[in-house]
Design a protein around this nucleic acid. Structure first.
Lengths: 245, 245
DNA sequence: CGTTACATTGAAAATACTCAAGTGTTGTGG
DNA sequence: CCACAACACTTGAGTATTTTCAATGTAACG
């Protein structure tokens, strides 16, 4: 088993193994960020994108009024901080939920990789569109569904993503997120997150033991979810074939 | 003045004039979609992306429960339907709010353009990241701010985007959106949209005459907005220089 | 002019929030 | 190994925001 979970990039962003390795190879040596630590702060100058080699992290925006909204929960294998690629100062704060292993890819080196592997640009574009779709679904869920529905969607989303990297099986997985963090993801208070989860528990839809979550009846949960999962097309008509560029 | 508002692509997506023309030149002949018409329906096979040559349009997701969430209000010059590039069937419905002039760019031709103008891939990537940031801000606004704050943000966002294409001046612009549509953008009911706008009016922050909106005190409104505007960097370090690819 | 679509307002109900207190749980230093 | 912080979770009671339901007003259009 390789040091790095390439499957993540391969499946989500449909980068080939060689392309993910090219990106990884150009990255800085990995650093370890301890639980609660900050990887990159909002408003910092944007100098790199980040590969999350292992761990859980959050991407959060702080509103002027002081509240924090988490816009993405990152897990092992995710690419982080790329929306800020088009800004001078970072849009979001990347924070380690668990201890994380992270490799930074300075933007200049990313440019070199884009030139050296011309297909990587379109593939990166593809992975960004996938993230954009996830955000569109988030907006839909936040605008038009109840706390319970949003919670169900989050649990299913985490389950499906964790299953892809082998960190969830038969609806069971570890979720190292406090209820306050969940609230900042869902746009709810920690108190209401608590009530909502307890409700799902009383209904027999989920069970919890510490950080361990068990989705008892996934089919029933999927029926409750405000948005269905999306199936990515791995060979879209607009993607130049290898060798064409 | 050219037939096509290239400034939009140039400013928002930082495509050069030549690149925008390349994209436009590869598009199908323009079609006219009448007010209320559908440009592309959710779940349709994805065959093209769309250039909105003129008019207002919405990109909306329909939830299984039947509600509709508008994830983007498109104005003249916008590129539409690109998130569905990575799907077999479209994620969102594109509908004409006003009469629209639209040019479709079939995905196969987009591929040809990407090959012929290699810098277009990274530039497209840039424009998609800009849209992604807008969605992140939307999530933040929907999760953590009140109806009034969200309404203020929407009005400022429309104002700023319209100003870029010369369709807003001194805080005045036409907004051909019904309160029901506004509700589907903001995640509110039409009734509450009405109350919220009337409140802003009573406070002297805005005025309305039919579709005409006047932002009386833009500075005060910006202070109320839950998210500040973002400044895009037009020459990011990761963007290969012309000629480098 | 009648029809239709959109805007406005009131009253009651529902959802989620705030404040507050109490209950684990975990980690740490003595 | 215990005491005690520190942190996270849980629950109750009252409040605020937003929704729902219903009725009425108004402007555009054939």
């Amino acid at each position: 088993m390789p040091n790095y979970p390439l499957t993540r990039f391969h499946e989500q962003a449909s980068l080939t193994q060689a392309e993910a390795e090219a990106l990884r190879g150009m990255g800085d040596p990995e650093i370890v960020v301890r639980r609660g630590g900050t990887i990159r702060r909002e408003r910092d100058p944007v100098q790199a994108i980040y590969l999350l080699l292992e761990g859980w992290a959050t991407a959060a925006i702080r509103l002027p009024a002081g509240q924090r909204q988490i816009v993405k929960i990152h897990i092992t294998g995710d690419m982080m901080g790329t929306p800020s690629m088009v800004l001078d100062t970072a849009a979001d704060t990347l924070a380690a939920v668990t201890e994380c292993r992270v490799a930074a890819v300075p933007l200049e080196r990313l440019r070199d990789v884009l030139i050296a592997s011309p297909r990587l640009g379109p593939l990166l574009l593809m992975s960004v569109q996938v993230e954009r779709l996830a955000l569109m679904d988030s907006v839909a869920a936040m605008g038009k569904s109840s706390a319970r529905e949003r919670m169900v969607r989050l649990l299913l989303d985490l389950h499906d993503r964790l299953a892809k990297i082998g960190a969830a099986e038969e609806g069971r997985f570890d979720m190292p997120l406090t209820q306050e963090l969940l609230g900042d993801v869902l746009g709810l208070t920690a108190v209401h997150v608590n009530r909502t989860m307890r409700l799902l528990e009383r209904e027999g839809l989920i069970a919890r033991h510490g950080q361990r979550v068990v989705l008892g009846n996934i089919e029933a949960l999927r029926k409750l979810s405000p948005v269905p999962p999306r199936r990515i097309r791995f060979d879209p008509a607009w993607l130049p074939a290898p060798g064409a560029m």
